[in-house]
Design a protein around this nucleic acid. Structure first.
Lengths: 215, 215, 215, 215
DNA sequence: CATGAATGAGCTTTCATTCAT
DNA sequence: AATGAATGAAAGCTCATTCAT
């Protein structure tokens, strides 16, 4: 593969070097996994020597944490940017989902770091990702709640149910992201549409008071 | 923690020891992850020496694979046993979901091995889990399709859409399992109910021809 | 390959069992080398369980020593049997060489144990083989000396020269044995003839007082 | 024993360290054998840590191969340097033998690696040594052939016989090397002289058409 | 007589991490 | 600002050897 950017040995401002290292780390962590990725490989891919990586990023754990933070922030930012707040709740949800599918498709290594790697390695990392996911779930919960409120069709859903729905929706989106990007060949908008059809309709039914019960 | 079962050093028939080892391995792999789990720790937890683990299970990879197989088979069996085929499709789906939530709640380490650990480690393992998940998705796809057929309300869904819905549903269930077991304190039947309300209603709406579109 | 002889588990007199074990050990040591040969493999090839090997032969070292002793004795016996003492010295030498080539060709594993394996592993073994080789060198020295005496052509060779010649002759025979058995396809008698042509003639010249000198 | 050279822990250029490691490895492999030599011991003798040995020489196998190559090349070079091509064939042979005895006496561990250790361990190593030995046999064959040709005394020897003689001669030299260096206290020139007396005279007789035959 | 069950000890190898320059 | 040189610590795996039956 060779260095991501910049000629080896060139003096470069710290910020640039750091970005190169993070790029290399995300790629390596995403593809190899946390434990299998070696600092050696990351340094090589970044085009610098190992001690420099340590000088800038302290340790493998810190480096991994920095990757999680950067990729997590980028994902949340992308979703938030997609779901413009002036839109109606359903449009926001759709746009947020589309942004989510688009971003994960365009940053597969970053998504792998967040979704596959970070969650399988001890507390420091899992917690960070869990926090970010909680943020998204809260955001979705808000949208669903707002929608329910807008369509004031009487039946209020209690908070726990709302969160449960949001959890389900986020999980469905994660699952679809994997399916769409790896297996099937589905565009982000198609995926968002499929999910909205499914979820928004169900939500509508719920709010009309319809329920499924095992009788 | 101490040994899972049996006094250390006691002579035991091979089958028993093997079960103890698998128990210890599932617990360790589930909590530490594949790479961080050491054979030493697994052996200790099983109350045996390392060489015995190798004698019976060959290698760390083989041991991990055996865990995946055992836990995967158990999960699939639990779901299949829950969803009795003589029931209507919706009841089957509900019962399958309830069984899924129950089983994952009762075997958190096994579920962690399957859902978090196995998918992050190279082809041999990821493939095995992917195959099992595909089996469940196919099962769910069948149920949804059958339901759609039973309620012959005209609008047929094409195959790809059906699979997409099943993917979303399975993802939602996985997400809810984590939420219900770790964060909230929700019973399996509650979780299954929440998901059915959401999904079955949405499905019903879809089959009546209702669609959401960004217009 | 399967057990050398006898059905597994059958009760057999100790001597027979021991022979089977030694057969298996010679084969395994000869082909794998001392360190790479595992007691497991030897026991399996002998068709018995490991503890029985230990019961009869104490340890890997003892087992190896027993192999060396048995194969060494067999080789020396074969050579001595070939060189019948009533013959003239040259005929004895020729017959001894032929017997040596024949025996090594027919017992390649035993020869490998003696010639390749035993000499590369610490004192206990190397010494044993060295002793046997010294015996053969002494025997050859005697034959050469006798021949020199018989052909009383004046020039006596001093003892050290005699031993040196015997050393050279034995080394030449060892080398030819490898060459004849592994590389070329030469019969034992041909090999013995080649060596006699070379050595006996040289010896004859020496005894006529001819010498080579760098001048 | 202590480190071969250089104070422990000192920073040194790679080439120097590598030489130290090879020195230590040759010594250890020569004395202990391939399997019994531990990387730990080699590293200690070289005055470095184990990881450094792996960093520079990759693996135990590679290290052993490097030893074989270095010692083998040195031996062949010494013999070739001894046998100056402008000399007559007999003088060349004598000088080559003397160089051989000298070199093996001065590098006993290297000689042990080549003659005892390398030949007992699997294909990669045995083949390398076999190739080198074949080179020497070919060289000797050439010398004998040239000598036979120079002393055009009618009787030509066929190719196979020549090679057989060379094999015998090389084997005799190997045997004498062990005898001279370990047991007796014989100088290289004495050993070369003994062997020449024996071999060259025998060769001369052969070329005069004399043969030994059993009758 | 014979063995299934079990282990202590040691080996090669890898890797995050740090000096000294 | 940057690196070549070096290591401590740990992990996977193997094997000769021994009990308990």
């Amino acid at each position: 593969m060779g260095p991501v950017k910049g000629a080896k040995g060139k003096r470069m401002p710290r910020a640039v070097r750091e970005r190169q290292m993070l790029d290399a780390a995300v790629r390596t962590f995403g593809q190899r996994g946390y434990q299998s990725a070696s600092m050696e490989e990351i340094a090589e891919l970044a085009g610098v020597s190992k001690p420099l990586v340590y000088l800038y990023l302290n340790s493998k754990e810190d480096l991994f944490a920095a990757c999680i933070r950067r990729e997590g922030d980028a994902l949340v930012a992308a979703v938030r940017a997609g779901a413009q707040p002036e839109l109606a709740a359903d449009r926001q949800l759709w746009a947020g989902l589309a942004a989510f599918f688009t971003h994960t498709a365009e940053h597969p290594d970053g998504w792998a770091v967040l979704h596959r790697q970070a969650r399988t390695h001890g507390e420091p990392f899992a917690a960070e990702v869990a926090a970010m996911r909680a943020e998204i779930v809260a955001f979705v919960t808000g949208l669903i709640g707002a929608a329910a409120h807008e369509s004031h069709q009487g039946q209020e859903l209690d908070a726990k149910d709302l969160v449960g729905l949001a959890q389900a929706l986020v999980g469905a989106a994660e699952s679809l992201a994997g399916w769409a990007n790896e297996t099937a060949d589905i565009s982000a908008k198609e995926a968002a549409g499929t999910l909205m059809n499914f979820a928004w309709m169900g939500l509508g039914a719920l709010m009309k008071g319809e329920r499924w019960s095992p009788r």
